[in-house]
């Protein structure tokens, strides 16, 4: 294992933030820590970064307790973003890289490539304060990866980014994975996590709900969901036999069925009443898996990006 958390516990004055949490992060994967706001994601990551110290348990990097050398081998993007506003892009990146033992000439070699990839090349000599918030996010992402860290840790990776920029960052992360880097990220946006991670761990209220590879987790839950696009009112589907749950989204309906239900029978019943445009048996989404496993309240996910400790 590249990184291993063993029975970590962290208690704050009024609550237990993380409780008996164990994670195993293999080398070369994209690993997602997923959970609602306040689940303990940031606390966990901060403990990995040695910013806070766990009350009990241990954190191992390459089977040894995390030490000073870890700092130079990791790239860390904290939940609270920030850069020196008065400095130029190139100076900020150079200083951050220097702190990671990455020389100025090495930065000069790489910087143009990365600025090009995130569309910031025109701002190279501008001051950070002249960038928009989204641009600053991308710049900070570059400072996180420019020194070619072996392990990249990103807290609330997608917060503050628009869909286009999310795609840009996602592409870069997939490239980095291909190069053999290990990526650990946290998010409360399940749909995005689902498209990105190989392995994942769901946590809720400081405790692990489930973990494993994405395919593992999904197959454990089986294909018991159906997505239906129809013309007309689909409320009646709720009442059909074999339908366990019913969720109406903006442009489709998702239902869950009992294990032994006849899907053909359901399709027929629906087609009898309305025009069916799409009828697809799908894997459950991470969101549904989470709600089912953690018995969590769906409203926990409606937060805006995780302002928790």
């Amino acid at each position: 294992m590249l990184l291993e958390l063993k029975n970590i516990r962290k208690e704050y004055e009024d609550k237990v933030a993380v409780d008996s949490l164990s994670l195993e992060i293999p080398k070369g994967v994209i690993y997602g820590i997923i959970g609602p706001n306040g689940a303990g994601k940031t606390t966990t990551i901060r403990m990995v970064m040695n910013i806070t110290v766990p009350d009990s348990g241990e954190i191992l990097f390459e089977n040894k307790p995390v030490d000073e050398t870890f700092r130079d081998r990791v790239g860390y993007l904290p939940e609270e973003r920030g850069l020196y506003k008065k400095m130029t892009l190139i100076d900020v990146v150079s200083y951050m890289a220097a702190l990671k033992d990455f020389s100025k000439s090495q930065v000069n070699e790489k910087l143009d490539y990365w600025l090009n990839r995130v569309d910031l090349i025109d701002y190279k000599d501008k001051k950070v304060e002249e960038l928009s918030k989204g641009m600053q996010q991308k710049l900070q992402f570059i400072t996180t990866i420019i020194h070619e860290p072996e392990i990249i840790i990103l807290d609330e990776i997608f917060s503050g980014l628009d869909p286009i920029n999310i795609e840009i960052i996602k592409d870069i992360l997939l490239d980095l994975k291909r190069e053999g880097k290990t990526i650990l990220f946290s998010t409360h946006v399940m749909e995005q996590a689902e498209k990105l991670c190989d392995n994942l761990c769901m946590i809720s209220q400081g405790q692990k709900v489930l973990d494993g590879t994405l395919t593992d987790v999904k197959s454990r839950f089986g294909k018991n969901s159906i997505q239906i696009n129809i013309d007309g009112d689909g409320k009646f589907i709720k009442e059909l036999s074999g339908v366990k749950s019913f969720t109406e989204y903006n442009n489709y309906i998702e239902i869950k069925i009992d294990k032994n239900s006849d899907t053909n029978q359901i399709l027929k019943s629906v087609a009898d009443k309305v025009m069916v445009k799409r009828f697809e048996i799908v894997e459950p989404s991470l969101y549904e898996i989470f709600i089912e496993t953690a018995k969590a309240d769906p409203t926990d996910f409606n937060g805006n990006g995780g302002q928790h400790a």
């Binding site: 910013i51 993007l77 904290p78 973003r81 920030g82 020196y84 506003k85 702190l99 990671k100 400072t143």
Partner: peptide, 13 residues
């Protein structure tokens, strides 16, 4: 206040 501290302490003590 610029929230840069957390990045700094991930690089230096």
């Amino acid at each position: 206040t610029s929230r840069i501290m957390e990045v700094l302490v991930s690089s230096v003590t």
